[in-house]
């Protein structure tokens, strides 16, 4: 796996808390398709860059930006144009 600038990237898992401030579902287990290269995978396996005013999720294959989430007092911006879709599991839990 490569990172854009050294070892600053984390896994998308770590974005779960901030994403859950705007989504009612766990997004880290949802499958997303990269609009850049067509790669599909759980957002939890995307690369997270969060040493910035917001957070950025990048495609683990082509490094394209998938999601940007920026919060300011009283407002939050969400940009998901780097994804062609998000697929959520909706079966009932057998347990």
């Amino acid at each position: 796996m490569t990172t854009l600038d050294g070892n600053t990237a984390l896994d998308g898992n770590a974005a779960g808390g901030d994403l859950r401030t705007v989504f009612a579902l766990d997004v880290t287990a949802a499958t997303g398709q990269c609009a850049g290269c067509g790669n599909t995978g759980p957002l939890g396996s995307a690369q997270l860059y969060n040493r910035a005013p917001g957070l950025i999720l990048r495609c683990p294959r082509c490094d394209a930006v998938l999601v940007r989430l920026v919060a300011a007092p009283g407002r939050t911006w969400l940009d998901v144009r780097g994804l062609t879709y998000l697929q959520f599991a909706t079966e009932e839990d057998p347990g």
């Binding site: 896994d11 898992n13 779960g16 287990a29 939890g44 347990g95």
Partner: peptide, 14 residues
């Protein structure tokens, strides 16, 4: 605290 968070790096008994 807020959580629990995450559904990918998870092991379930099933």
């Amino acid at each position: 605290v807020r959580g629990p968070i995450g559904g990918w790096f998870v092991w379930r008994a099933a």
